[in-house]
Design a protein around this nucleic acid. Structure first.
Length: 265
DNA sequence: CGACAAGCCTGGTAGC
DNA sequence: TGCTACCAGGCTTGTC
């Protein structure tokens, strides 16, 4: 499920479990999870280091290491973190960090679609990945948003999910933004005015902010959010009607055909 | 058995 | 015509 609000949770999780402990050893369970870095390089860099701080940018977590460089964690579709003291690593552990005090931090990824890497300079990494502004960045203004989304073709949904336009939003939260904006998921950007986009900016910020405050927990969302209902085919939390699904840019979009209309419709 | 799942990257090409 | 950016397909594993 990892989108921006889940990354907020992962950041808090590392902050509260794993900082300022000396690393004894690092295990790489499956090298396919590594980007363009070797198993040896990552093990050497982590040995005897400490995790000193965390930064989140879009769907990336950058964990600062004593010495200055950063461990890069990306969670793909199925990534997760587990800290434990006793017992065995959880299923699908691809990176395991053993601390000298006996604790362990496991990065799990069932489908190996995420990535573990290293970067010396965070700014260089973000530029390399061609990421747009983080959806919750305070400097990401309404004007920036409208400029980035106007004069494009394609759907609003795929633009919201495009990490080089805005970083942090995926399939689930793009559906939520469209639901709160009462727009059909197939809505094209050419059908929307700059005024429409200004309104969508406010909704996008509100959805991402309130979801992040609840750390991505579906039980900590307002009553009228689509997210907790999207997987069991309804009912719509606003009108009690039947939710439907459709395909937009190769992704499954969940929506309420009664509440969500085409622009002007 | 195939379809599907919340991630991103790539190549071919639709559209300006 | 040329370039951009859009989208289908692929990656991966487990479940229905």
């Amino acid at each position: 499920m990892p989108e921006l609000p889940d990354l907020v949770r992962f950041k808090k999780y590392i902050d509260s479990t794993s900082l300022h402990q000396k690393i004894k050893k690092t295990h790489i369970g499956d090298t396919r999870i590594l980007g363009d870095i070797s198993r040896r390089a990552i093990q050497r860099r982590l040995k005897r280091a400490q995790l000193t701080a965390t930064d989140r940018y879009g769907k990336f977590l950058l964990v600062e290491l004593s010495g200055g460089s950063h461990l890069v964690l990306h969670f793909g579709m199925t990534g997760n973190l587990t800290y434990y003291v006793k017992g065995k690593p959880p299923p699908h552990t691809r990176l395991l960090v053993d601390f000298e005090n006996g604790g362990h931090l496991a990065y799990q990824s069932q489908r190996i679609l995420g990535e573990v890497g290293l970067t010396e300079k965070m700014e260089n990494f973000l530029r390399q990945r061609k990421l747009g502004p983080d959806a919750l960045d305070e400097h990401f203004t309404e004007r920036d948003f409208v400029d980035r989304l106007s004069n494009r073709r394609g759907s609003l949904k795929s633009a919201l999910m495009n990490q080089s336009i805005i970083a942090g939003i995926g399939n689930v939260y793009s559906d939520e933004i469209l639901f709160q904006a009462r727009l059909h998921p197939g809505t094209k950007l050419t059908e929307l005015s700059r005024e429409d986009l200004s309104g969508i900016y406010g909704i996008m910020r509100w959805v991402m902010k309130i979801s992040s405050q609840g750390y991505g927990d579906p039980d900590r969302l307002p009553d009228n959010f689509l997210l907790p209902y999207r997987n069991n085919a309804g009912p719509c939390p606003k009108c009690n009607g039947q939710l439907e699904k459709t395909e937009v840019s190769g992704r499954t979009a969940r929506y309420c055909p009664h509440c969500q209309k085409w622009p002007g419709g």
